[in-house]
Design a protein around this nucleic acid. Structure first.
Lengths: 232, 232
DNA sequence: ACCTGAACACCGTTCAAGT
DNA sequence: ACCTGAACACCGTTCAAGT
């Protein structure tokens, strides 16, 4: 029972992460735990266990669970792709942003809730805001118009992401007692077009609508005579 | 210490709710607790205490906390106003729906998260779906188009509601370390138009855009010659 | 039928202690 | 500096018991 010379190390880590604990290792394990077991499935104790460490060790790297989840958010945001200015016209850059934002929800349905629900004003978030506002500026909008469209784009992006989650995953907290469609003829008729398989198409349709509208607003702003939608 | 004749009842209820526990009383107390202390602030034990009852008594009315929260969702949904068919043209009915859906977020910012995050297929929800799809049908859309626009409206409604929450309430889990605006000139310029005070105006602007687009789609669907937007 | 009380298996977090 | 172990004040839920 004493110290055996060649004793196996008592810590086992499920990931290929070894050596001293790092913020990086903690965050990626946390994210994969959330992906696997949901937000409620993540506890400091289980996260510690997955890293081969006591729960309290985590507090040496993050002051609280809330702060840790904030860092997970930042990590999610880093997945959004923001193609550089020169590469694409401004409205196409916006399209890329909205698409890849929604992809976060597709890839991390449980974790995406964090982005939707928690307010965030971090450097990573501000970089995204700046990117979007910059594209709007290049499209010819002033600060007021940009702010409005910024919000509109945000609504669409987070609404689309949430719909992605809500429609794919069944609710673990509640058994699905599906109401009979007899009483809801319109819902019955639309049901087959509302299935998860159609989501991508619906999303792209909505995105086109959104961008068309922004294009239209740009034309109005410039005056109808020298409208140049081709450059957007 | 025995039974005194005129002993005050040992239960005290914070609400004006008396008599035997009812689903109604539990739900309204639960909602006001969530409004006051947030979703995480609601526990079965505290809810019981607020009702002057042991936590376990609640399980006689709801099988689990999840089921209780589901019933709270239903209650929130009941707040949405759906003016009857004859009273307003279809697109104006949609406007009412989206507006009042967002008002749930304004009135119950903490509880609204439930609606946004959890999937729900209950009778109350289906009634709302049917209402929206019916308005779209009256506006002349077939099942495919209706399904698309239904989703689009849903994105906008829940995105707008969430933005309402995120921008009003500071995050309790995370101290706000606001990044310096020096590095973000566009954000700095738009900041004053993105304040909470402007939210109503931005929302109405976006809603107009959404409905304009739906009107346009309706015209395209009917063929350009007999377009009658006045009736929408 | 409706509620209680004790118990079980969990939480996040604090704090003193180890190396 | 980095981690442990025990402890505190909570959770949701089960189960047997009370009336």
């Amino acid at each position: 029972m004493g110290s055996t010379p060649d004793a196996l190390p008592s810590r086992r880590r499920t990931d290929a992460v070894r050596g001293p604990l790092s913020r990086e290792a903690i965050l990626s394990t946390a994210l994969s735990q959330i992906d696997a077991n949901g937000l409620d499935g993540l506890s400091m104790r289980k996260l510690g266990a997955a890293l081969g460490v006591e729960a309290m060790a985590l507090y040496h790297h993050f002051p609280s669970k809330g702060e840790l989840l904030g860092a997970v958010m930042e990590r999610l945001l880093a997945e959004v792709s923001l193609p550089p200015r020169g590469l694409l016209p401004p409205l196409e850059r916006l399209r890329c942003f909205v698409r890849s934002y929604r992809q976060i929800a597709v890839r991390h349905p449980h974790a995406f809730v964090l982005l939707a629900v928690r307010r965030f004003s971090t450097v990573a978030a501000f970089e995204v805001y700046e990117y979007v506002l910059d594209a709007l500026a290049e499209a010819g909008f002033d600060a007021v118009q940009s702010a409005r469209l910024f919000r509109l784009i945000g609504y669409y992006a987070s609404g689309a992401g949430l719909a992605e989650i809500a429609n794919r995953a069944p609710d673990p907290h509640r058994p699905d007692t599906f109401p009979s469609l007899q009483r809801f003829p319109r819902v019955a008729a639309a049901a087959r077009y509302l299935r998860a398989g159609n989501q991508d198409a619906v999303f792209e349709f909505g995105l086109d609508v959104l961008l068309d509208e922004i294009r239209r607003q740009a034309r109005v702003g410039k005056g109808a005579r020298n409208a140049g939608p081709a450059e957007l």
